[in-house]
Design a protein around this nucleic acid. Sequence first.
DNA 1: TTGAAAGCGATACCAC
DNA 2: GTGGTATCGCTTTCAA
Lengths: 331, 331
Amino acid sequence: MKASIYDVARYCGLSVVTVSRVLNNTGNVREKNRRKVLDAIEALDYRPHAAAQSLARGHTRIIGLMMTTLHDRFFETVVNEINRALARYGYFLALSVSSDVRSRETHDLMHEDRVDGLILLSLPEEDRYVAQLKKRSIPFVLIDNQRRDHMVPSVLTDNYYGGYEAAKHLLSLGHTRIAHVCGPEYFLSTRERKRGFLDALREGGLSPFAVVQGDYEIGFGYNTAKSWIRSGKLPTAVFAGDDYIAVGIVNALAEEGMRVPEAMSVIGYDDQYIASRLRPYLTTVRQPAENIGQSSVELLLKWIGAGSTASVTVEWKPELVIRESTAVYKA
Amino acid sequence: MKASIYDVARYCGLSVVTVSRVLNNTGNVREKNRRKVLDAIEALDYRPHAAAQSLARGHTRIIGLMMTTLHDRFFETVVNEINRALARYGYFLALSVSSDVRSRETHDLMHEDRVDGLILLSLPEEDRYVAQLKKRSIPFVLIDNQRRDHMVPSVLTDNYYGGYEAAKHLLSLGHTRIAHVCGPEYFLSTRERKRGFLDALREGGLSPFAVVQGDYEIGFGYNTAKSWIRSGKLPTAVFAGDDYIAVGIVNALAEEGMRVPEAMSVIGYDDQYIASRLRPYLTTVRQPAENIGQSSVELLLKWIGAGSTASVTVEWKPELVIRESTAVYKA
DNA sequence: TTGAAAGCGATACCAC
DNA sequence: GTGGTATCGCTTTCAA
């Protein structure tokens, strides 16, 4: 049978209160007794019962994380970092991956006082949750939120800047026939990247060779490039909405014997695993996933600690990573 | 303030016992009263307090999952499936990703009665945990365990079979100069795949063109292929230890203007995302991650339900997925 | 510095 | 069918 705090108290001839005190490092315990308690704990291999502690203290030291998919390098890294940061502060991570927003389990995560706070990672329909969370006054943080108008603590990256920098890079290389192959319109990030891209081109006095919209998939990039090739009209540089699209483009070109960056410069977004492994290594825009994960935890724990929040927004700048897939334009 | 079961009882003029009864669907409640309770719950927007329930019931309905990395398609899918299966049974998932086996948080997951059971996903040093778990009599299941000798409930895939089938496939295509580029020796899966591969070759009366060992990385496949090319001595077919290695090989070949499968047949393992997206689509050996995730949950919950286990081992057969990267040998 | 006792919010045994 | 009460294991006043 597992030892309880009473067993420890009995074992060392002190009261449970004293045991509790050394457990929680609340002062006022004679050093000699402290030792006795510690020894008893050791001898009995005692560990406090989490549920009992939660009940007594009113909190669980569990943070919930809700997301729709793990299959994304950026998300993976964020989750990893959140996990690590949480552990450092003595918190646990409850994960809920659910593509179906309306499923039951995600709701119970916030309904039964299971968590002290929640992190919402790039959730569509975020409003629905935000309303619930506010009503139940559960601390939360949004990462990569879709809407920026409601005042809620959130951490995000400057996608406009990312798109802008990507385009600037291509421009500086002397390209003038520049296309953008982007993701679905309903992502704020897609729209922002595009806006940044277009603004940069406009500043350069250019209009885009083309703006093609589809999914963040290798296949979409592949098909787009193939259709350009078929038509015989190609841009000299492409800003892909993400690395998968970029890789698809490179792949299609390679099949036709065209090399990147010689035949076409290609720039991606996200710095996924393959971006730095597959030749040609991809020039890309990197989001600081580690920082994002960390800030979200810090923001959340600050809220939990303070009992209220100032609804801070932390914004990270993405970073242009120049590798092999972009080069100076040669006529 | 959040409503407790006492508030509900007071509101509907019944006792907490009755409320608890309708909450848990234990019979013996007059239908009329049942309605009253339900109405009160509705009116007060009441939800039972998880910690209080855990304390009273003696379990948490939380299952812990320990793993070392999320960056793997197979793992992702397993996690996803575990999450889904758990949710179906009304359980929650506590995740601990930790490459450092000795870190604190992973331990507390099993020490404070936070979880009703644990799933260990492909953990090196599994023995250490198994011992702890057994000592504390916490139900657990191993997925993809490294050692197969200790009697513990586990679910795994037949890597020997996978390697064997891969080789058979290449053999049946008429290849005779077949290489194996595999992962690190310390993975049981690596050793098993290799053993299957070698046995198949032996049955075909062949010895391998080469067996090269390195990391499960694109770069390793790339470098290996490059060195073959430099040496001028190439196999006509390769069984890569995983898809990343395979993609690296294809990538290196493509750079030299050599096409797959025309110049060389390549077969991967795991059916990662890129395997089915990048041309040429990879012939690969697919592990049934969904089934694995599900069985692990079922095994674990069965143990938890029964209070004991028969130490079952569930083994899934991987499946050969033939796509574009392998073809009949032409001299 | 220490400990007795009152919660925390449920469940479960046992009368009625 | 229903409800009083002890119980789960810990924290937190409050007196001593």
